[in-house]
Design a protein around this nucleic acid. Structure first.
Length: 496
RNA sequence: GCUCGUGUGGUGUAGUUCGGUCCAUCAUGACGGACUCUCGAUCCGUCGACCCGGGUUCAAAUCCCGGCACGAGCACCA
């Protein structure tokens, strides 16, 4: 054995120490041709972007950057009834996108302004005998689909279909009475693909184009046409849309187009939020459960921004998770950990005394000023100078006979008075945060707590408190200054 | 019911294409310690996983077969 080792050392020393496997970092390569990548992010503008959407923004913009490609932001606003577009949401989404991606989308389009394109393709499809107007009711058609039977409308002639189509687009046919289907095959093993619906009638006005159109495409049709029009090369979508890929591929075959490369991801849940949807949030806002889209309890990007999350933390989170088809459940802790790493070196420290009690210093000689560092590791040079008097505040729950007032002195507390024992740290008594009366301002710390929002009353250090800034409050955590007024400073909790 | 997809530590991920370099990577977490005038940061250490059962093979997280579990689609929503 010894001899073998010696011999190996002489001609192949690397064989003796094996290398540990390394984790491959970064996004996997996109499939197919990547010479000119065009991606798309297609939200429904029925609200601002949420944590769920952020994955799409991050992944698409990251791939666009990797391949020097483009991202099309497309508003899928073709439903005026169930998830009607919110007129303000278009701008919100662009704002949210820019905040997250760090740049504007390369192309911005609204499906509602592209209606002529979709209607033309629908008419073309019908006149080529590949689509038909179906007057069956939903339940009737469901039976045909289940039993693999053709519905009677399938046999209508092209000219009959074109007449029916004319009636649909002119508004003569009422909502719910007809739908345009793609003529696939009712014998297909996958029931989702059997003569799938492409366009339906909607007389509810659209917030942007009003009553201009009576017939609107469904997602699978609109998206299929538009992806081709925009030259999309890769579609990154949830795996719940796998059947969309299959439906649309059938249509692409008919039109003689090449389908983009589809890539799927699984469903994401966040421990702290569970499942949520934009329309669900909207109804909770309307019923008064939440104060608005920026309510700190909400997983909207606006709420995250308001609380002080750096968009970089979201980018890191989604890059780390990457693209897998697994259904996952992530914890906010992971996001917070990314955010802390970004924030810790660049945030100044301050003192926040929650539930304060007042103590009087009994010594005759009290220093006029106390200096605390802006950052303990010197990442931010300089210090905070505190004016001193004979009144100080500490947290009621820190009350103990001997404590150390951080960055100041070891003290002895009896009743409501306090005596300085040593400015130098003399033993291992607990270190607590505190404030002299001269530096204390009334403050409220708003802490989202599940369904509730707790308002913690306290005192905040009155040293260059800037509205909009994030500070790390010692022994508390990161919080953002939301507003500063004469009477009160409002802080919004971020995380530990 | 039909169709589709996914199963690696508490959580997330690498490795699976082309079996060996994997007693399985990295992050997060938990626990312990060092350091520190924050319960922050930093540093060190520990914990913990290949869904199950067969098969092929000298060798299986990786290939084959069969189970099981979970998720999704079958909307005139996106």
């Amino acid at each position: 054995m010894e001899a073998v080792i010696q011999e190996l050392e002489s001609f192949a020393p690397e064989a003796l120490s094996r290398e540990k496997h390394k984790k491959i970092e970064g996004l996997k390569d996109l499939p197919g041709s990547t010479s000119k990548v065009v991606l798309r992010f297609a939200p429904n503008p029925n609200g601002p972007l949420t944590l769920g959407h952020s994955r799409g923004v991050v992944i698409n913009s990251a791939y666009a950057e990797k391949y020097e490609g483009k991202v099309v932001l497309r508003f899928d606003d073709t439903d005026t009834r169930i998830k009607p577009p919110l007129i303000e949401a278009y701008d919100w989404i662009i704002e949210d996108y820019e905040w997250l991606a760090g740049k504007s989308p390369d192309v911005i389009i609204k499906a509602s302004e592209r209606m002529p394109v979709y209607l033309d393709h629908a008419e073309k499809m019908i006149s080529e005998g590949y689509g038909y107007v179906c007057r069956c009711h939903v339940e009737e058609f469901r039976k045909f689909r289940e039993q693999k039977k053709n519905c009677p409308c399938r046999e209508n002639t092209i000219s009959d279909n074109l007449d029916e189509w004319g009636a649909m687009i002119s508004g003569k046919t009422s909502e719910g009475e007809a739908v345009v289907r793609v003529k696939t095959n009712m014998n297909l093993p996958n029931p989702a693909l059997r003569d799938w619906p492409a366009l339906r009638i909607q007389h509810t006005p659209h917030p942007l184009v009003g009553k201009k159109y009576n017939v609107w495409p469904l997602l699978d049709f609109q998206s299929a046409i538009e992806d081709h029009e925009q030259g999309i090369t890769h579609i990154i979508r949830g795996k719940d849309l796998m059947d969309s890929t299959r439906k649309q591929s059938i249509l692409y075959d008919h039109f003689g187009w090449n389908y983009p490369e589809p890539i799927y991801w699984g469903r994401v849940k966040v421990h702290e939020f569970g499942g949520f949807s934009t329309s669900g949030i909207l109804s909770s806002i309307n019923s008064g459960v939440f104060s608005g889209w920026e309510d700190p309890r909400l997983p909207t990007l606006r709420a995250f921004r308001r609380r002080g999350f750096d968009s970089q933390s979201l980018r890191e989170l989604w890059r780390e998770i990457g693209l897998t088809q697994k259904d996952i459940s992530v914890s906010m802790q992971t996001l917070e950990s990314f955010n802390s790493k970004i924030l810790d070196p660049i945030t100044e420290r301050r003192s926040f005394v929650q539930g304060p009690i007042k103590l009087q210093i009994s010594d005759e000689e009290i220093p006029q000023e106390v200096y605390c560092p802006l950052h303990p590791d010197g990442e931010i040079p300089g210090s905070r100078g505190w004016k001193m008097g004979n009144i100080v505040y500490i947290q009621a729950d820190d009350l103990a006979p001997s404590v150390r007032l951080k960055d100041f002195a070891d003290v002895k507390i009896t009743e409501t008075s306090l005596k300085i024992e040593s400015e130098k740290r003399s033993d291992d008594r607990p270190i607590i945060n505190w404030l002299p009366e001269q530096m204390a301002r009334n403050a409220i710390l708003v802490v989202p707590d599940g369904e509730k929002v707790n308002e913690v009353a306290g005192l905040v250090e009155d040293f260059n408190i800037e509205e909009g800034s994030i500070y790390q409050f010692e022994r508390v955590g990161f919080a953002k200054v939301e507003s500063v007024s004469e009477e009160i400073v409002r802080l919004i909790w971020l995380h530990k």
